[in-house]
Design a protein around this nucleic acid. Structure first.
Length: 780
DNA sequence: CAAGTTGCCTC
DNA sequence: CTCGGAG
DNA sequence: CTCCGAGGAGGCAACTTG
């Protein structure tokens, strides 16, 4: 029991907040009623739909109706180059319409430079006026509410958004569906449905921070009736947002802003904004020298050049730091406190924060591999078909003082004795997109614990690995089996799909970051300190199979060996930093004759360091299905399609494809395809399969079996398309070859269009039995 | 309480 | 994961 | 060469609905 006056104070406070909430709710309900009334009147006048769709996208800016209502400040043009833009001071809190303006302006151009400028200048205004709104803005731009390894999903989609639109604007669901088809973007629907809303009393303008907070609140709703609560929160926002604000609010809610800027551009803009803020000033004395040497006229150009140089430098630093520690919370905090100086040290690679994984560049032939890495020492590793995993582990001793929060987020072992001291091991596993998947793999956590127990010299590590499903004899199983694992709160007893860890890189060992070491050194650290082992119920710890032989026959032999162990292909990795001297052809390769002619004597210097988030040329990905001679293609028949969304909203996309079932003379759906088509081909499809032409229908053509799929339009099956895929999968939805291999149908992984086979008739397409045979073949 | 739907994540 | 478009 | 955004199959988890 608290003392009396504290108690009174507590009562008073809770009453206050109760009254606040009540008032807020009443405000909201009044606004909602008014808005509904407005939109009903508008509908009666036919206002919302009088505009044809071509005018919808582009009219936003010059349309007098949209701009004035929720805006008090004059529109600001952000796109000027940072050195000619002077950020105005706006009184905090920064309003949502400013954020929306930035989105609108980004969407109005395709120039990457302009988009970067717009975001840079937007950030500069915030740094100057309301730096607390910087992080919320960043999160909204980045389609996230926080770092990816923390749980903060919105958990809403088209359903909640459509219901909110229906409730707030009173437009019928069928009308909304129609708009959605026509516009191909839920945000554009929200724009259309709210653009002409006229309110007698303006609702209070939204602030960036309020929108972000509401998003957070949406993400935290859980349990029964949570969808309803979420809908109400969205409605509350929608009442105060119309036109462009509603458009970007909704796009934000489906995490698809389409402003031509995501991660890289955001980091760049952030860097440039802070660089401008902190040290844009080029010393006058510096410039005086320029004037003396080259005259007054050259001064401005030179000044600009020097500023640009500083900005580019800042960009590099921030992008590098972000790739190694991808968390805007930490990054922005450091930038606010000490700017760009010492950023690398204040935001370091750390155990517990995943680094962006390094990626491999696609390579389409072995010759290509040799051309790029010729004469350089490299290794080839099996590219197993599993799941990428970044393991973070460190020992916690009694003397460690760690925040409760930090420890709770990882897997914590029970105490054990080590060099006469009680300690525990703390572990976290991250996926390729940096999601926390520690709970999915308790068996791997046990393996890691075992390593710490048996090797007392280990104190911490960060390791890159592939997790694959394995059978009892240790052979790798297909990806589909790995996918059957449960994901949440898995106990050791619940593990039904055995896995093994195939480590291939080590980014940190015993507190020392190794990213800037060569791959050979990193691999050595991995091999000598974290050796393969099998123990009890632990997942087997292994190193990925590899060969260092760089001869063409050795690589191809290794590739085929990898194929036989069901790998997707190989990863070829440079081992050491290597700078080729001018004209140095070095040793000799068997298969070099062609490539030698093509490539000049000078080759680009390549680093063998760990380059987070870069599709660096020092890692080359070679997969079976990239190589035309090895991968197999199929001839399929287009039987239907959907209305494309976004950029493809004037095209048919995706397109439903079928195999020919020779037994029944039928076409059965096997997969959808949306990749590999050029815009020109899409255009031709609009003619061949015109909506009201002879080759389309709203019901399936005779002999076409679509299963439970429901395409917007059905095609007359008369064409044959060559398509490629990585492999065949068992399918719970597609009817193709159903019953020929187990209960399920079959489908195709990573389907893409290659070309139209004008020379083939539909009877010559691949058949259901072809498909079944191919499936058997790949499963041995 | 079981079945169906959708979100979000892997590749 | 795939691909094409565009700067 | 780099960045973006169209969207593919599939499977678990969590919610709503019957």
């Amino acid at each position: 029991m608290p003392p009396a006056d504290d108690f009174d104070e507590a009562i008073r406070l809770s009453l206050d907040s109760y009254n606040d909430e009540k008032r807020e709710r009443e405000d909201y309900e009044r606004d909602l009623k008014r808005v509904k009334l407005d939109s009903q009147q508008m509908l009666r006048r036919g206002g919302a739909h009088a505009h044809d769709h071509d005018s919808v996208i582009d009219s936003s800016h010059d349309d007098a109706h949209t701009a004035h209502n929720l805006r008090i400040t004059q529109p600001i043009t952000f796109k000027a180059s940072p050195y000619s833009f002077h950020p105005p001071f706006l009184s905090p809190p920064i309003r949502f319409d400013l954020w929306t303006d930035a989105c609108v302006q980004c969407s109005s151009t395709r120039s990457r430079i302009e988009i970067t400028n717009i975001l840079t200048n937007y950030f500069r205004i915030l740094i100057r006026s309301d730096v607390d709104s910087l992080l919320p803005s960043l999160w909204l731009f980045s389609h996230q509410l926080g770092p990816p390894y923390e749980p903060n999903e919105l958990g809403i989609g088209g359903h909640v958004l459509n219901r909110s639109l229906k409730d707030v604007t009173s437009i019928s669901p069928s009308k909304l569906r129609q708009l959605h088809h026509k516009l191909g973007d839920i945000g554009d629907v929200a724009f259309e449905a709210t653009r002409n809303r006229i309110s007698v009393i303006e609702p209070k303008p939204l602030t960036v921070d309020a929108v972000y907070s509401t998003f957070l609140s949406i993400s935290q709703q859980k349990g029964p009736r949570s969808q309803e609560t979420k809908t109400n929160l969205v409605k509350k926002l929608l009442v105060s947002a119309k036109g462009e604000q509603a458009r970007y609010l909704f796009r934000s809610l489906v995490q698809n802003l389409r402003i031509g800027a995501v991660r890289t551009t955001l980091s760049t803009a952030l860097a440039r904004a802070f660089a401008m803020h902190y040290h844009v000033s080029i010393e006058e004395s510096e410039m005086a020298e320029v004037v003396e040497a080259t005259g007054k006229r050259a001064r401005d150009g030179e000044h600009t050049r020097r500023v640009e140089e500083k900005l580019t430098g800042a960009e590099k630093v921030v992008r590098r730091v972000y790739a190694r520690h991808p968390n805007y919370n930490t990054l922005v905090k450091a930038l606010r406190e000490s700017g760009l100086d010492g950023l690398e040290d204040s935001v370091p690679v750390s155990v517990g924060t995943p680094v962006q994984p390094m990626l491999g560049a696609i390579t389409r032939s072995f010759d290509d591999v040799l051309t790029r890495l010729r004469h350089r020492p490299f290794t080839s590793e099996a590219k197993l078909d599993g799941q990428r995993c970044q393991l973070h582990a460190r020992v916690l001793s009694a003397s460690d003082t760690l925040s409760e929060e930090y420890v709770c987020k990882g897997w914590k072992s029970s105490p054990f004795d080590r060099i006469g001291e009680q300690c525990m091991v703390w572990i976290r596993l991250f996926s390729r997109r940096l999601e926390d998947m520690t709970e999915k793999y308790p068996d791997i956590c046990l393996s890691v614990l075992e390593m710490f127990k048996t090797n007392p010299s280990i104190t911490s590590f960060v390791v890159d690995a592939e997790i694959a499903a394995v059978d009892d004899t240790g052979r790798v199983r297909p990806f589909q089996e790995l996918a059957n694992r449960s994901r949440k709160a898995v106990q050791m007893d619940d593990v039904h799909v055995k896995v093994a860890v195939y480590a291939f890189d080590c980014m940190l060992y015993n507190g020392e970051p190794l990213l800037d070491k060569s791959f050979r050194e990193r691999r050595q650290t991995l091999r000598t300190n974290l050796a393969p082992f099998t123990f009890g119920n632990c997942a087997r710890w292994d190193h990925v199979p590899s060969t260092d032989d760089t001869h063409l026959d050795a690589i191809t032999a290794f590739f085929h060996q990898c194929m036989s162990m069901k790998a997707e292909g190989i990863m070829v990795k440079l081992l050491d930093y290597y700078e080729e001297a001018e004209g140095d052809y070095g040793g000799d390769h068997d298969a070099d004759e062609d490539t030698k002619k093509k490539s000049p004597s000078k080759q680009k210097a390549l680093p063998a360091t760990y380059e987070p988030d870069k599709r660096a040329d020092s890692w080359l990905k070679v997969k079976k299905d990239y190589i035309a001679e090895i991968g197999d293609s199929m001839d399929l028949v287009p039987i239907g399609a959907w209305h494309g969304m976004g950029r493809k909203n004037k095209f048919w996309s995706p397109i439903l494809l079928a195999v020919y079932d020779d037994d029944e003379g039928a076409f059965t759906a096997v997969c959808k395809c949306m990749s590999g088509f050029s815009d020109a081909f899409y255009d031709s499809l609009n003619r061949v399969y015109a909506e009201d032409g002879p080759n389309t229908s709203s019901t399936p053509f005779a002999g076409v079996q679509v299963g439970d799929l429901n395409p917007d339009i059905h095609f007359n099956p008369f064409q044959v398309w060559e398509c490629r895929g990585a492999d065949i999968t068992q399918s719970p939805v597609y009817p193709a070859a159903k019953g020929m291999v187990g209960e399920k149908g079959l489908s195709i992984r990573f389907p893409r269009f290659i070309r139209c086979r004008e020379d083939k008739h539909v009877e010559q397409a691949n058949t259901a039995s072809d498909l079944a045979r191919m499936y058997q073949l790949q499963a041995e």
